[in-house]
Design a protein around this nucleic acid. Structure first.
Length: 231
DNA sequence: CCATTAACGACTA
DNA sequence: TAGTCGTTAATGG
């Protein structure tokens, strides 16, 4: 389980030398996208692959009655696109949660990169597999677990995704602002249920706020202990 | 245990 | 000002 969450944050191009990265100059020029920029939507012609060079991105879809369902939040080094998250025909949105730099590749560029560096294909499969494992884990909590457990799992996932470098610290900050609404949306719940659970987790010393309306931090060991309990 | 409904003050586009 | 956010409480499955 720990290995899986580690794999999920492996950068596709990690392990390649600088020269090799230089050769992969098919990557489109980079520019900073301000917070709130919609990177992809059903109304846009989207690329096959997006790579987050820095910042964070929220993936969500919109139901018929206009409600947003947040599927995932990704951080630096993560990728998303047609094959990982964008199934054909399903309207999906991607929006930056902070100022971010995003690489875009079309199918030709991606194909060419893989042809030149076949290891990329293997890494790509690892990443997609880890993503699938995550959704299966959450599905299990949806079926048999409490909302509390779903939130614990979600916080654990977000912490390792958004702040992999601080994994040896006890308190790991989740460096984006997330509303109760979004937490509820990602755990198949509602904000009225999420609020008391969050307050309880804070009392238990598992969760902490940096400031008034600032990002959360989680206590890694306490969280994992709580996750293996039966509640 | 948890969704639903209602309601309220505080905050924000 | 209208809409969103966090919170509490009553109710019912």
């Amino acid at each position: 389980m720990e290995l899986i969450t580690y794999l999920s944050r492996v950068d596709l191009f990690k392990g390649l030398s600088e020269e090799e990265l230089q050769q992969l100059n098919h990557i489109t020029p980079l520019e900073v996208r301000p917070r709130g920029t919609v990177i992809a939507s059903p109304y846009m012609e989207h690329k096959v692959l997006y790579i987050i060079k820095s910042g964070s991105v929220r993936l969500y879809k919109v139901t018929e009655d206009g409600k947003e369902l947040t599927l995932d939040i990704l951080g630096t080094g993560h990728l998303f696109g047609e094959i990982t998250s964008f199934r054909s025909g399903v309207p999906l949105f991607a929006v930056t949660m902070e100022d971010s730099v995003i690489c875009e590749m079309d199918s030709g560029q991606f194909r060419k990169a893989i042809t030149e560096k076949p290891e990329l294909a293997l890494k790509y499969i690892e990443i997609v597999t880890a993503r699938l494992q995550e959704t299966e884990d959450m599905l299990e909590y949806m079926a048999y677990g409490s909302v509390r457990k779903r939130l614990l799992y979600l916080f654990n996932k977000l912490a390792s995704k958004l702040n992999p470098s601080a994994s040896n610290e006890e308190w790991i900050p989740i460096s984006v602002q997330i509303t109760h609404q979004e937490l509820a949306s990602m755990t198949g719940s509602i904000r009225e249920t999420v609020t008391p659970i969050l307050n309880q987790l804070a009392e238990e010393g598992i969760l902490r706020r940096e400031g008034a309306r600032k990002p959360y931090s989680i206590h890694r060991s306490r969280l994992q202990a709580a996750l293996s309990e039966s509640k």
